[in-house]
Design a protein around this nucleic acid. Structure first.
Lengths: 204, 204
DNA sequence: AATCTAACCGACCACTTGGTCGGTAAAAAC
DNA sequence: GTTTTTACCGACCAAGTGGTCGGTTAGATT
């Protein structure tokens, strides 16, 4: 069973490096050779573990990207607290991480989605599914927030969710080459004022 | 001077086709040969008119993309009317155009910005400049809206502008593979309620 | 000790990439 | 009517591209 460990270790190394390079340079602009050179591995090793470049990328989505989205955007909003506060906080945290990342190139899912949208149905489906999971979680949270008396009932949870996701994807792109500190501060201030429009004020 | 006309015509044909293919498939995923094949022109023709693929793309930005942004997003908000109404309307129109476009791949500027961000400083600067122009126009409009009594004074025009731009960029990406009709409707409803937070109510 | 196999090597393949360059037909300039 | 210039052709180039395949080696299995 030691062999299996080595297999997993090598595949994981490849995925991590592949993810880095794809994220930095884009999928089409990164060759398999680029990744292999950076890993000091050979073509043989690559095609022993993966069927194709596309297959390799899909494994990266499933193993690394899904996990990242879960840990930064989904898990932080689980629970029974005030949805509006929790959402704002999770997004602020995600933006802070980006801000502190010297090599930030934007929201991973979004960048790849842009690159594959309408060009590779298989891959873009995987990516859209990830966004969908995030979306569903926000919607569920908001619905629960209504019954718990945090959120006013007449807003459309679906509409709010996709508005939040949209604005997040956009600000992440702007932050790449702009002043991330100011952009984040401004963004959060506006997000807050937007979220405030749907706060349920308790009856006095 | 007839020659100059032909020159311009050919260059323009190339730019239009190049724009189409780059937009549909991405810059790195579209070869010069692809464009030439679609135009039934030769390598010689291409490199007679343009120095390089990059030079060609820059000419597309300057001739086609800038113009498109101006006509759809900037000119519609010029004037002395209520900024909040005007902005909402211009964005709704832009989204409607996208919705009716069978071959929509998202917001042109944003897609290319994502592809070049951190990878080609020259090109991403051009693209960021376009966004900057849009941003400045929104900011100016909002400031004027304050003095004209449409917009409450204590909001940050900069923050509002980048929030609007962010959300627009994001929703355009979501619309590519989602249900554009519903997404647009929902988005506009949320944008409206966001913009409503900064309406100056006239003193009774 | 002999065998087998997982993991990896690297030469090789057909094809594509952005870009060059000598040529050419037709129109403009003289 | 000759020369020059414009606009374009297409063969060619070096450097990649994703992918194949016959080998090699270290360690597990027998």
């Amino acid at each position: 069973m030691d062999k299996n460990l080595k297999r997993m270790a090598t595949m994981h190394r490849m995925q991590v490096t592949g993810m880095e390079l794809f994220y930095e340079q884009g999928y089409y602009n990164t060759s398999v050779d680029d990744i292999l050179k950076s890993l000091e591995l050979s073509k043989g090793a690559f095609y022993y573990h993966f069927q194709s470049k596309e297959d390799f990328f899909i494994s990266i989505i499933q193993n690394l990207i899904v996990q990242k989205v879960y840990s930064t955007l989904i898990e932080p909003i689980e629970g029974n607290k005030n949805p509006l506060t929790v959402i704002e906080k999770s997004i602020d945290n995600a933006l802070q991480t980006a801000e502190n990342n010297e090599m930030d190139y934007g929201f991973v899912v979004h960048n790849f989605l842009t690159e594959f949208n309408g060009r590779n149905e298989t891959i873009s489906r995987y990516l859209r599914d990830i966004l969908k999971i995030w979306e569903v979680n926000i919607i569920t949270l908001l619905q629960k927030g209504k019954t718990d008396g945090y959120v006013i009932r007449h807003v459309s949870s679906e509409a709010v969710a996709s508005f939040i996701i949209s604005s997040y994807m956009g600000i992440r792109t702007l932050m790449v080459e702009g002043n991330p500190r100011i952009l984040r501060y401004n963004y959060i201030s506006q997000l807050r004022s937007y979220l405030n429009t749907m706060v349920e004020r308790e009856l006095a």
